[in-house]
Each structure stands twice: as C-alpha cells, then as structure tokens.
C-alpha cells in the first residue's frame, strides 16, 4: 500500500523527520506512538501534502505511484485520507456543498458519473448513520461551532464518504470523552476491509483498545526506534517512553 523510505522533512530550518522507514500493506492497521515533538503529526502532514513542510530526502511510494510528486488534492483522489487532529472551521461552506464537491472530484478521477442529487443525499444519510452524526450538522458550515467530539465524528464521516485506501488518523482520540471515542473507533472499524489500511497516530494507548493495531511503532526524534505487535502499546502504557529513548 505505502512504502516510506528514509524520509527526511523540515519546517523552516528545523529538521523534524530524520530518516523514517515504514511499510504498510493492505488489510493492516499500524499504530504510530511517541512522545510530544517526536514528529508524529509532521509525518501525517507530510504524507497528506501540507506545503509548510519541505521534504529534503527519501521517497514515498503509494499504490505504485510517487506520492511526494502529487498535490494534496491528488493524494486524496488517489485514496489517501488524513483525519485531522484539528479539523478546520470553514464559515459559509456548508457540509453538504463541501462533500458534494469532494465526492464529485473523487468520482471524476475514477471516471464515474456524477451522482444525482437523490443518490448523493442517500449516500450522506447512510454514512452519517455510521458515526451517529446528527442530521443537523450537515446543514451547518464545515466544523463551525462543532464540539470537539462532533469535529472528530465529522472526520470519520468524511472518511466514510470518500472510502480511502489508506486512512491516517492523526490524534483522533484527543479531546474525546469515552463515548465519543467509542463511536469514532466503531466507525473506523466498520470501514475496515482487507483492501484498505489504517495508520493510527496517537500519544496514548487508550484508542488502541478500540482500534486494535497489527503493528505498533515508536517514533522518536524523527525516526522509528522500535516496532512490535499490539502488546508493545501496552508495554508503553505501563512503562512510558523513557526506557526506549535512553
């Protein structure tokens, strides 16, 4: 699915990723954990194509294509999805118009005809149920005035609408109470198939009780310093990160 080799990236003069290697195959769930400032969110941003970051070395192959050559919107249409840690409020753009534009772009890319208004509304309704999203929310502007939980549900709802090949969940658990966390995790699990993959970026083990990873990686100082199975997350929960970093 995705192969990251020796990825180095900086923002301004500050190098944050310092040679990161990772391979994720279809059907797998990978968790990336690590202390604050280790480069977790930078990795998510670089993969999604945020322009603030400059990739200085390395390569990323996504479904046989050079990911780093693509604009952010191309990456999305090719099947990469980033669930934002801080979803952006966009006053004036309704959720419906936003999703209509996004779905249209994705379908065009796949050579599929545009959905009729009726088909589109049916699709929205179906996907909203997946995350118990309040029908009212889709009438409102994108994320405007949404609570923390609503914003994260909204990310998973968008993921459901776009059915990505690879989803990257950036600290999706932050700011969620346990009920919202369960709803969000349920949604992600329902979207899982043998053909797609998920990278869960998280600081805490908590989310991994609900989205169970096949592999856990510890990121520190811009590199993956340890990889293991799901039991590694429990070990980190118990011992913290210090034992790994020294």
């Amino acid at each position: 699915m995705i192969t990251i080799k020796n990825l180095k990236a900086k923002i301004g003069d500050k190098e944050i990723l310092k040679g990161l290697n990772l391979e994720v195959k279809a059907g797998e769930v990978h968790a990336i954990m690590g202390p604050n400032g280790s480069g977790k969110s930078t990795l998510a941003s670089v993969l999604a194509g945020r322009e603030d970051y400059e990739v200085t070395e390395g390569e990323v192959e996504f479904l046989g294509k050079d990911l780093l050559e693509m604009e952010a919107d191309e990456r999305s249409r090719e099947g990469l999805f980033l669930a934002f840690q801080y979803p952006v409020e966009i006053p004036g753009v309704s959720m419906t118009n936003f999703m209509k534009a996004a779905v249209k772009a994705h379908r065009e890319h796949k050579g599929l005809p545009e959905l009729t208004a009726k088909e589109f509304l049916a699709l929205m309704k179906e996907k909203k149920q997946l995350v118990n999203m309040d029908t009212q929310l889709s009438q409102r502007s994108v994320n405007e005035g949404f609570s923390g939980g609503e914003k994260k549900k909204n990310e998973v709802y968008q993921m459901a609408m776009l059915e990505p090949k690879l989803a990257i969940l950036d600290e999706t658990d932050s700011g969620l109470d346990i009920d919202a966390l369960r709803v969000v995790a349920d949604g992600v699990n329902k979207l899982k198939t043998k053909d797609n993959a998920t990278i869960v970026i998280t600081h805490y083990q908590r989310l991994l009780d609900y989205i169970v990873p096949d592999f856990v990686h510890v990121l520190h100082n811009g590199r993956i310093v340890k990889s293991g199975g799901k039991e590694l997350a429990l070990e980190l929960e118990e011992k913290g990160y210090d034992w790994l970093l020294n």
Binding site: V88, V93, L162
Partner: peptide
C-alpha cells in the same frame, strides 16, 4: 485562510 484551503484540498478538491 491557507488552513481552510488545505483542508478542502485534503478531501480531493483541487486548489
């Protein structure tokens, strides 16, 4: 707002 623009792009809508 560049963040809003990136958010839309990240959903497949071109720049």
């Amino acid at each position: 707002d560049p963040n809003a623009q990136f958010y839309l792009q990240a959903r497949g809508i071109d720049k």
